[in-house]
Computed example of a mutant assay.
Amino acid sequence: MKLKKTFYGGQVFVGVKETAFQSSFPWRHATEMSKILKNSFLENGMINPILIFYTDGGPDHRLTYVSVQMSLIYLFLIFDLDLICVARTPPQNSWKNPAERIMSILNLGFQSVGLMREKTEHYEKQLDSVNSLREIRKLAEKYPTVEEEVLDSVEPVRILLSNVITRLKWKDKNLKVFDPATEGEIFDFRREILKIDQDIKVTDSTQQDIKKRKLFMSLLNDHCKIAQYIFSVKKCGKTSCHVCKKPRLSNEMFESLYHLLDPEPLNCDKYKSFDQLYGKPTSENYRPSLTGKPSSEPGLPFSPSSQYAKNVEMVVLCSDCDKPRVLYSKKVVRGVRRTQLVNCLTDIQYTCGFSFDELDLEEETHV
């Protein structure tokens, strides 16, 4: 077997989803990944014992989030992996992810493609009156058939885009389209995490939640490496372990298998090589965001005050510490800009210190 010297190859899979009811979040990603692996890469009923991911830095891939960790741990268990290792790009650096290069091919395929959904049968007037994804979901809570009709209305668009995608190629292989995971599939997938700890609830998603789950906490401590940009789960190799099975790799190979290391500087210009650090204990002490000198300037480009808080009149909940945080703005946020902000908050998990500076909020126009 000829070894390839690049990670950037193989089969490309693309998902086409409706935003309101098929939004991106960790458990959906993990469910869809498990389906792709089962349907496409199983050999003799098993995939290779080591699985490696590299993702962008979005909130649905934030490796310090419990929901992300849980979804990855279950992939580790369901496929009986010896090691699963996931790394993510730093903020605003998703362009460094090699998989992002496929976007140039997709953009070429989508040139001059016009899209228009069909009208729903019963709820078009109600949908015209809503201004955010959150309001669409609330409408679906009031009228249960809204979700089905919305998905049916965009199905022709999904089929059109899927046909375009499957005609595109990467390295002589046609791209493939996978179906979005259903709510039932996601629920069944999440429920399997109970096999680790019966005390875990399907709704557990914060650090405060899992601190009470002793068995799950022991799994994190004994099998996982958790860092800002790296998360990995490795079998312990102990026969008495109630979590993982016997390693599938040979004893010699498994003994030489370690969690992914953290970079450490060799001098002021270079980092130590992989061979110099592999198998040795490393830490995040040299992460640039930790070693940088603290700024004497305030975190905001202006001094926060009650007036600037009144410009937004909104509080968000931190997904890490579960505490409410006040939003400040130098200008009044109303109309179109407020709708865009609400939509943004619907689609992200806010963490303390996050700045909305880079959001492209439209300025209001007055006639």
Score class of each variant (00 low, 15 high):
Leu168Pro: 04
Pro301Glu: 10
Val164Ala: 02
Lys176Glu: 11
Leu266Ala: 13
Pro26Asn: 09
Lys280Ala: 09
Leu327Gly: 00
Val164Thr: 12
Tyr8His: 12
Val332Ile: 10
Ile52Trp: 04
Glu364His: 11
Gly15Cys: 12
Leu161Pro: 08
Cys224Trp: 14
Val154Gly: 07
Asp56Val: 09
Asp262Thr: 00
Glu43Arg: 07
Asp60Lys: 06
Glu252Asp: 15
Asn39Pro: 08
Ser205Leu: 06
Val16Leu: 09
Arg117Thr: 06
Ile136Thr: 03
Phe21Ala: 05
Tyr271Gly: 01
Val326Met: 12
Ile102Asn: 10
Thr206Arg: 14
Leu175Val: 01
Thr31Val: 07
Arg28His: 10
Ala227Lys: 02
Asp269Asn: 09
Lys96Ser: 12
Asp209Tyr: 04
Ala309Thr: 12
Asp188Cys: 01
Ile105Gly: 03
Leu220Asp: 03
His29Gly: 01
Asp209Pro: 04
Ile52Gln: 13
Leu300Asp: 13
Pro144Gln: 04
Ile226Arg: 14
Glu183Ala: 01
Asn285Val: 04
Pro144Phe: 06
Ser24Arg: 02
Gly335Asp: 15
Ser104Ile: 04
Lys38Val: 03
Ile52Asn: 11
Asp320Phe: 06
Thr120Val: 15
Glu284Val: 08
Glu284Lys: 00
Lys176Asp: 04
Arg62Leu: 08
Thr346Met: 00
Glu255Val: 04
Leu261Thr: 00
Gln69Pro: 02
Arg117Lys: 11
Tyr258Met: 02
Phe254Trp: 14
Ile186Ala: 07
Leu37Ser: 05
Ser162Gln: 13
Val66Pro: 08
Lys195Ala: 07
Asp172His: 04
Ile78Trp: 03
Tyr143Phe: 15
Pro294Asn: 12
His122Lys: 15
Phe53Tyr: 07
Pro49Lys: 12
Cys352Asp: 00
Gly353Leu: 04
Lys38Ser: 14
Ala227Trp: 02
Asn48Ser: 12
Lys272Tyr: 14
Met103Thr: 06
Pro49Cys: 14
Arg334Glu: 14
Lys310Ala: 06
His223Val: 05
Val66Lys: 02
Phe187Trp: 12
Pro98Glu: 11
Lys142Arg: 15
Ile230Asp: 07
Asp357Leu: 02
Asp269Phe: 03
Asp360Ile: 08
Ser319Arg: 11
Asp320Tyr: 02
Arg88Ile: 03
Leu161Thr: 09
Met253Glu: 15
Glu252Gln: 15
Leu220Met: 10
Val312Met: 07
Ala309Asn: 14
Leu75Val: 05
Ile84Ala: 05
Ala227Glu: 13
Lys323Met: 00
His223Gln: 07
Leu249Gly: 10
Leu215Trp: 08
Gly57Tyr: 10
Glu141Ser: 14
Gly58Phe: 08
Val14Asn: 01
Leu277Met: 13
Gln228Tyr: 06
Leu75Ile: 12
Gly279Cys: 13
Met33Phe: 11
Ser329Asn: 12
Tyr8Arg: 02
Lys280Arg: 13
Gln11Arg: 04
Gln126Gly: 05
Arg191Trp: 06
Arg28Ser: 09
Ile52Lys: 11
Ser129Leu: 10
Ile105Lys: 10
Tyr278Thr: 02
Glu121Gln: 10
Ser329Val: 03
Gly45Cys: 05
Ile193Ala: 02
Lys35Thr: 08
Ala309Leu: 12
Glu183Tyr: 05
Glu363His: 13
Tyr286Asn: 15
Gly45Phe: 09
Lys169Ser: 09
Leu3Val: 15
Lys272Phe: 11
Leu290Asn: 09
Asn311Thr: 00
Lys5Leu: 11
